[in-house]
Simulated assay, not measured.
Amino acid sequence: MALVQAESRTSRRAPAGRPRRRGLGRRLAAGVAGIVLAAAAVYAQQNFAMSFEQRTSFLTYKGRIGETVATKRFSVKVVSVTAARAVDTADYSGKVTKVGTSHLFLLIDVTATSAREPMKLSKYSPPLLLTRDGRRYLPTDKVDESLTLFNRYIQPGFWTSGPLVFEVPKDAVPGASLVFIPPVSPLVVDNFAPEAQVDLDLSGAAADRLIAQAEDYHTLAGPSR
Protein backbone atom coordinates (compact mmCIF):
# COMPACT_ATOMS: atom_id res chain seq x y z
CA MET A 1 0.00 0.00 0.00
CA ALA A 2 2.81 2.34 0.75
CA LEU A 3 4.10 1.85 -2.74
CA VAL A 4 0.74 2.61 -4.26
CA GLN A 5 0.33 5.74 -2.19
CA ALA A 6 3.77 6.89 -3.17
CA GLU A 7 2.96 6.31 -6.80
CA SER A 8 -0.31 8.14 -6.35
CA ARG A 9 1.38 11.15 -4.77
CA THR A 10 3.98 11.14 -7.51
CA SER A 11 1.35 11.05 -10.20
CA ARG A 12 -0.63 13.86 -8.59
CA ARG A 13 2.44 16.07 -8.20
CA ALA A 14 3.84 15.49 -11.66
CA PRO A 15 1.83 18.21 -13.39
CA ALA A 16 2.89 20.76 -10.81
CA GLY A 17 6.52 19.65 -11.12
CA ARG A 18 6.86 20.34 -14.83
CA PRO A 19 6.93 24.14 -14.55
CA ARG A 20 9.66 23.84 -11.90
CA ARG A 21 11.78 21.80 -14.31
CA ARG A 22 11.21 24.39 -17.02
CA GLY A 23 12.16 27.14 -14.54
CA LEU A 24 15.35 25.30 -13.70
CA GLY A 25 16.14 24.98 -17.39
CA ARG A 26 15.61 28.69 -17.90
CA ARG A 27 17.88 29.48 -14.95
CA LEU A 28 20.59 27.18 -16.31
CA ALA A 29 20.30 28.76 -19.76
CA ALA A 30 20.50 32.24 -18.23
CA GLY A 31 23.55 31.23 -16.22
CA VAL A 32 25.32 29.87 -19.32
CA ALA A 33 24.42 33.02 -21.23
CA GLY A 34 25.82 35.14 -18.41
CA ILE A 35 29.10 33.22 -18.46
CA VAL A 36 29.34 33.61 -22.24
CA LEU A 37 28.66 37.34 -22.01
CA ALA A 38 31.25 37.77 -19.24
CA ALA A 39 33.85 35.86 -21.25
CA ALA A 40 33.03 37.96 -24.31
CA ALA A 41 33.41 41.14 -22.26
CA VAL A 42 36.84 40.08 -20.98
CA TYR A 43 37.90 39.10 -24.51
CA ALA A 44 36.71 42.40 -25.92
CA GLN A 45 38.45 44.32 -23.15
CA GLN A 46 41.74 42.54 -23.75
CA ASN A 47 41.62 42.56 -27.55
CA PHE A 48 39.83 45.81 -28.31
CA ALA A 49 41.18 47.98 -25.50
CA MET A 50 41.99 51.57 -26.27
CA SER A 51 45.28 52.14 -28.02
CA PHE A 52 48.31 53.55 -26.20
CA GLU A 53 47.69 56.94 -27.83
CA GLN A 54 44.01 56.98 -26.83
CA ARG A 55 44.79 56.04 -23.23
CA THR A 56 47.57 58.56 -22.82
CA SER A 57 45.41 61.33 -24.31
CA PHE A 58 43.53 61.72 -21.02
CA LEU A 59 44.94 59.22 -18.51
CA THR A 60 48.59 60.21 -18.52
CA TYR A 61 50.11 62.68 -16.05
CA LYS A 62 53.09 64.42 -17.64
CA GLY A 63 56.25 65.98 -16.27
CA ARG A 64 59.98 66.38 -16.85
CA ILE A 65 63.10 64.84 -15.41
CA GLY A 66 63.75 66.18 -11.90
CA GLU A 67 60.05 66.91 -11.29
CA THR A 68 57.65 64.86 -9.16
CA VAL A 69 54.74 63.59 -11.24
CA ALA A 70 51.84 62.84 -8.90
CA THR A 71 48.84 60.66 -9.80
CA LYS A 72 46.00 59.42 -7.60
CA ARG A 73 47.74 56.06 -7.18
CA PHE A 74 51.46 56.92 -7.05
CA SER A 75 54.08 59.64 -7.45
CA VAL A 76 57.28 59.22 -9.43
CA LYS A 77 60.39 61.24 -10.21
CA VAL A 78 63.21 60.54 -12.66
CA VAL A 79 66.45 61.52 -10.95
CA SER A 80 68.98 60.91 -13.73
CA VAL A 81 69.69 59.17 -17.02
CA THR A 82 72.96 57.43 -17.86
CA ALA A 83 74.13 55.61 -20.98
CA ALA A 84 76.46 52.62 -20.92
CA ARG A 85 77.76 49.88 -23.21
CA ALA A 86 77.90 47.25 -20.45
CA VAL A 87 76.13 46.75 -17.12
CA ASP A 88 75.68 44.10 -14.44
CA THR A 89 73.34 41.17 -14.41
CA ALA A 90 72.89 38.27 -11.98
CA ASP A 91 72.20 34.55 -12.41
CA TYR A 92 69.83 32.32 -10.45
CA SER A 93 72.38 31.97 -7.64
CA GLY A 94 72.86 35.73 -7.31
CA LYS A 95 76.30 35.78 -8.93
CA VAL A 96 76.88 39.13 -10.63
CA THR A 97 78.45 39.24 -14.08
CA LYS A 98 78.93 41.83 -16.81
CA VAL A 99 76.69 41.96 -19.87
CA GLY A 100 77.22 44.13 -22.96
CA THR A 101 75.28 45.41 -25.94
CA SER A 102 76.00 46.52 -29.49
CA HIS A 103 73.51 49.36 -28.93
CA LEU A 104 73.19 51.35 -25.70
CA PHE A 105 71.87 50.67 -22.24
CA LEU A 106 69.86 53.60 -20.91
CA LEU A 107 69.84 53.51 -17.11
CA ILE A 108 67.03 55.63 -15.70
CA ASP A 109 67.25 56.22 -11.97
CA VAL A 110 63.71 56.47 -10.61
CA THR A 111 62.24 57.14 -7.19
CA ALA A 112 58.57 56.47 -6.45
CA THR A 113 56.01 56.30 -3.66
CA SER A 114 52.51 54.83 -3.47
CA ALA A 115 49.46 56.85 -2.44
CA ARG A 116 47.46 54.21 -0.55
CA GLU A 117 48.83 50.66 -0.73
CA PRO A 118 52.13 48.93 -1.48
CA MET A 119 52.82 48.06 -5.10
CA LYS A 120 55.51 46.31 -7.09
CA LEU A 121 56.23 46.81 -10.77
CA SER A 122 54.90 44.04 -12.98
CA LYS A 123 56.39 42.42 -16.07
CA TYR A 124 52.84 42.24 -17.43
CA SER A 125 52.59 46.05 -17.53
CA PRO A 126 56.15 47.33 -17.21
CA PRO A 127 57.37 50.90 -17.57
CA LEU A 128 58.16 51.80 -21.18
CA LEU A 129 60.69 53.95 -22.98
CA LEU A 130 58.71 55.98 -25.52
CA THR A 131 60.67 57.45 -28.44
CA ARG A 132 59.94 60.64 -30.29
CA ASP A 133 58.57 58.71 -33.27
CA GLY A 134 56.31 56.49 -31.17
CA ARG A 135 58.43 53.37 -30.71
CA ARG A 136 58.10 51.69 -27.32
CA TYR A 137 60.85 49.70 -25.63
CA LEU A 138 60.40 47.35 -22.69
CA PRO A 139 63.04 47.06 -19.95
CA THR A 140 65.85 44.82 -21.17
CA ASP A 141 65.76 41.15 -20.28
CA LYS A 142 69.56 41.09 -20.22
CA VAL A 143 69.58 42.59 -16.72
CA ASP A 144 68.15 40.50 -13.90
CA GLU A 145 65.20 42.17 -12.15
CA SER A 146 66.88 41.69 -8.77
CA LEU A 147 69.22 44.58 -9.67
CA THR A 148 66.45 46.99 -10.66
CA LEU A 149 63.39 48.77 -9.30
CA PHE A 150 61.35 45.67 -10.20
CA ASN A 151 62.77 43.96 -7.10
CA ARG A 152 61.55 46.58 -4.61
CA TYR A 153 58.20 47.31 -3.04
CA ILE A 154 56.93 50.86 -3.43
CA GLN A 155 55.36 51.78 -0.09
CA PRO A 156 52.94 54.54 0.96
CA GLY A 157 54.77 57.33 2.74
CA PHE A 158 58.23 56.18 1.66
CA TRP A 159 60.25 56.90 -1.46
CA THR A 160 61.78 53.80 -3.07
CA SER A 161 64.60 54.23 -5.56
CA GLY A 162 66.15 52.02 -8.20
CA PRO A 163 67.20 51.85 -11.84
CA LEU A 164 65.20 50.87 -14.90
CA VAL A 165 67.39 49.59 -17.72
CA PHE A 166 66.50 49.75 -21.41
CA GLU A 167 68.52 48.49 -24.37
CA VAL A 168 67.98 50.80 -27.34
CA PRO A 169 69.62 51.91 -30.59
CA LYS A 170 71.23 55.33 -30.58
CA ASP A 171 68.48 56.85 -32.71
CA ALA A 172 65.95 56.08 -29.95
CA VAL A 173 67.61 58.48 -27.50
CA PRO A 174 66.65 61.95 -28.84
CA GLY A 175 63.29 63.04 -27.43
CA ALA A 176 62.75 59.86 -25.39
CA SER A 177 60.34 59.73 -22.44
CA LEU A 178 59.76 57.26 -19.64
CA VAL A 179 56.17 56.03 -19.29
CA PHE A 180 55.80 54.77 -15.72
CA ILE A 181 52.93 52.27 -15.46
CA PRO A 182 51.68 50.81 -12.15
CA PRO A 183 51.12 47.05 -11.80
CA VAL A 184 47.88 45.63 -13.17
CA SER A 185 46.31 42.16 -13.19
CA PRO A 186 47.45 39.90 -16.05
CA LEU A 187 43.81 38.82 -16.48
CA VAL A 188 42.10 42.21 -16.58
CA VAL A 189 43.15 45.26 -18.58
CA ASP A 190 42.45 48.39 -16.56
CA ASN A 191 42.06 51.17 -19.12
CA PHE A 192 41.57 53.71 -16.33
CA ALA A 193 44.82 53.13 -14.43
CA PRO A 194 46.91 56.33 -14.30
CA GLU A 195 50.29 56.53 -16.00
CA ALA A 196 53.10 59.06 -15.71
CA GLN A 197 55.02 60.20 -18.78
CA VAL A 198 58.33 61.85 -17.92
CA ASP A 199 60.22 63.81 -20.56
CA LEU A 200 63.90 62.89 -20.15
CA ASP A 201 64.98 66.26 -21.57
CA LEU A 202 67.05 64.65 -24.28
CA SER A 203 66.97 67.28 -26.99
CA GLY A 204 69.27 66.88 -29.96
CA ALA A 205 72.36 68.32 -28.24
CA ALA A 206 71.63 66.65 -24.90
CA ALA A 207 71.10 63.29 -26.60
CA ASP A 208 74.37 63.66 -28.51
CA ARG A 209 76.24 64.39 -25.27
CA LEU A 210 74.67 61.42 -23.49
CA ILE A 211 75.62 59.07 -26.34
CA ALA A 212 79.15 60.46 -26.66
CA GLN A 213 79.74 60.16 -22.90
CA ALA A 214 78.35 56.62 -22.60
CA GLU A 215 80.27 54.66 -19.99
CA ASP A 216 82.10 51.53 -21.01
CA TYR A 217 80.72 49.82 -17.90
CA HIS A 218 78.15 50.91 -15.31
CA THR A 219 77.74 48.80 -12.19
CA LEU A 220 74.31 48.03 -10.78
CA ALA A 221 75.58 45.96 -7.87
CA GLY A 222 77.60 48.53 -5.93
CA PRO A 223 77.10 49.47 -2.26
CA SER A 224 74.32 51.93 -3.11
CA ARG A 225 72.33 49.18 -4.82
Rank of each mutant, 00 (worst) to 15 (best):
R64D: 07
Q46L: 14
P174D: 11
G162S: 07
V96M: 05
R12L: 13
V96Q: 05
A16R: 04
T148I: 09
F52T: 06
S114T: 07
P156D: 09
I181W: 02
F166D: 02
G17M: 13
G23A: 13
P194G: 11
G175V: 11
L3P: 00
L107V: 15
P186K: 10
W159P: 00
E145Y: 12
T131M: 02
A196Y: 05
A6R: 12
A16E: 11
A41D: 10
V165P: 00
A196F: 03
Y61L: 06
D91A: 04
A39M: 07
T160I: 06
S57C: 09
R21C: 00
A29W: 02
F58W: 13
P194C: 08
K77D: 01
E195R: 11
S146C: 03
Q46C: 09
S203F: 05
S161F: 01
S177A: 14
L128P: 00
A86W: 01
T111N: 02
A205D: 15
R55N: 01
E7H: 06
K120A: 12
F158Q: 13
L24I: 08
L130P: 00
D199L: 08
L147Q: 05
V96K: 06
Q155Y: 15
D133M: 07
V36H: 00
P182K: 12
S75G: 02
F48N: 12
Y124F: 15
A44E: 08
L178K: 09
L106M: 14
P186Y: 12
L200I: 02
T219K: 02
P169G: 14
Q5R: 09
F150E: 03
S122G: 15
D171I: 08
Q213Y: 02
R9C: 05
L37R: 03
S75C: 05
I65W: 01
T68M: 06
L130W: 06
Y43A: 12
M119K: 07
T82H: 06
L128Y: 10
Y124A: 15
T82A: 13
T10K: 12
S185I: 12
M50Q: 13
N151M: 09
E53I: 04
V110S: 05
R12H: 08
M1T: 09
V76Y: 04
A212M: 03
L220H: 01
A86L: 02
V189Y: 11
E117W: 10
E195Q: 13
G204I: 06
G31W: 03
T219Y: 01
D199G: 08
R20C: 01
R135C: 01
V179P: 01
P223N: 10
S161Y: 00
R20Y: 10
Y217G: 03
D109R: 10
G134M: 07
G66F: 10
A212W: 02
V79A: 13
V87P: 01
A33P: 00
A212I: 06
L59F: 11
V79S: 12
R9L: 14
D201M: 14
S57V: 06
L3C: 00
A207P: 00
Q5D: 10
I108K: 04
G222D: 09
P15W: 08
D88Y: 06
G162I: 08
A90C: 03
R22K: 04
A206K: 09
S80C: 01
D88G: 05
T60K: 07
D216F: 00
E53P: 00
M1D: 11
V76E: 02
R135Q: 15
